[in-house]
Design a protein around this nucleic acid. Sequence first.
RNA 1: CGGAGCAUAGUGUCAACGGCUAGCACGAAUGGUUUGGGACCAUUUAGAUCGGGUUCGAAUCCCGAUGCUCCGACCA
Length: 417
Amino acid sequence: MRQSELFTKTQKFAPKDEVSKNAQLLIRAGFVHKEMAGVYAFLPLGWRVMNKIMTIIREEMNALGAQELYLTALQRKELWERTDRWDDAKVDVWFKTALKNGTELGLGFTHEEAMTAMVKPFVTSHRSLPFSAYQFQTKFRNETRAKSGIMRSREFIMKDLYSFSRDAAEHEKFYEKAQAAYERIFRRVGIGAQTYTTFASGGTFSKYSHEYQTVCDAGEDIIYVHEGKGIAVNEEVYTDEVLADLGLSRDELVQKKAAEVGNVFSLGTKFSDAYDLTYTDEQGEKRAVVMGSYGIGPARVMGVVTELFADERGLVWPHSIAPFTVHLINIGRDDDAAQLYADLTSAGVEVLWDDRDERPGVKFADADLIGCPYRVVVSDKAAAAGGVEVKQRTDETPVTRAPKDLVAYIKNSRTQT
RNA sequence: CGGAGCAUAGUGUCAACGGCUAGCACGAAUGGUUUGGGACCAUUUAGAUCGGGUUCGAAUCCCGAUGCUCCGACCA
C-alpha cells in the first residue's frame, strides 16, 4: 500500500493520559483509536496486525478439526438463568440492555451457555460426537477498572473454542491437542519464548486449568516459573500441596509478572447438565457430554507483543504478524521505487511504500515507529553502492542488495522472530 | 467499588499574579527554498470539559457533574 493513501498519520507525541507503553505507541503510530476508557478501535494498520494474529489462530483451530462459526453478542436472560450466571451479584462484569418491550438482554461476556444451548438439537447419539467449534466474537465485560491500554478492555474480540466429547478420556485427548495448538500459536505470533503454560485453578471437574502466561511487566498476574521445564504456576494455586502434586519445589521457581494471553478449561458436564446436553451411547444409555472451553484474546496478544519488543524508536513487529513485511522508502528516484514496489508486491511481499514527499528523516522516523520487519531504501546513495539498502528493524546497519535479490533475501534472512 | 490525581486548539505544554489580544512547540493549510535521521522562511488555521457560584472582572478561586489516569479490590 502507498503510505500517501493511508488515511492515518503518525504523531510525535502520545496523548498525555495514556501511560501504558502499548497504548502510547499504538496510538502514536496510528494502529488504534481510543474511543473511551477500555474501548479501542483498530485502524487499518492495527487491524492488519489483528487479522494476522487471528489468521494464525484460525489455522491452528482448523488443524485441530474445530469448525468456525459465529454466535451472537445479544443473549437472552433465560440462557443465563439456567446456569445461575444472570444475577449481577454472581457475575459483576455484565453489560445488560433491553428490547423496546422491556425484555432483558445481556451482552455476552463468554459463550459457554449460548454454545451449549445451540448445539443441543444437533447432539443425539454417540455418532454426533466428538466435535469442536470456535468463533471470533466480540465480548463485553463491564470491568470496574479498565487499564493497561488494550490489555484489559471492556469490549474485545475473543477467540473461543468449545469441545464436546463422549467421555473424560476422549476429552482429555482433545484437551492435550488443544494445548499443543496453543503452544504453536504463541510460538508463531512471536511470543513463544516468553509464554509459559501455567497451572491455575480448575473448576468443579478438573484439578487445574491451564493459562498461557506471557512474562511482561504490563501483566496483571504473578506466576512462578520453572525455566527448565518451561512451565509455571499461577500465584492463586501456589501452595505446598499443588507444588507437591506437580513435582515442583519452591527453590526452583522464579516469581514473574505475566499477562494471560490464553487459557484452556475442562468444563466436565457442568454446562451439559444445566442444558441437558446428552447423547445415547452404543448401549442405548443416555450420557452427558463432556465439554471444554479454550480462549485467546488477539488484542491482548497484540498488546503483549508491543510491550515486549518495542524500543525507544517505536514498535517492533515479528514477521508473522507485521502489518507489512517491507517498509519501502525512497529518497528521490520515484520511478525506481515504483518499479520495486510493483515487483515486490507481485512476488507476494506485503509492502508499505512511503511515497510521500517528505524529508528522509521523517520517513525513517515513521518507519521505525510503525515497526515493519524490513526497511528498504531506494536512493542515489544506495544506487551508487550497487542496489538498494535493506535493514531489519532490530538491526543497526543496513546492507546493500540488488533489487532482484530482495525477495530471496527477505525469505532467507529472518533473524528476528 | 474504595482512594488519589488530572482536565487549556487535532497533539503536547511543571505558558500565563483574579485584569492588556490566552503564549509556545508539533500538526494542518498556502507559497517559496530544500532532500540520508522528525529542515528553513513567510503567511494562515485552530483552544478554556459541562453546569452553577464568588467577583467590577474567572482559564485562574469555590461547589457539583462528567471524563480520563494511577493505586487498591475485582478479573472463566
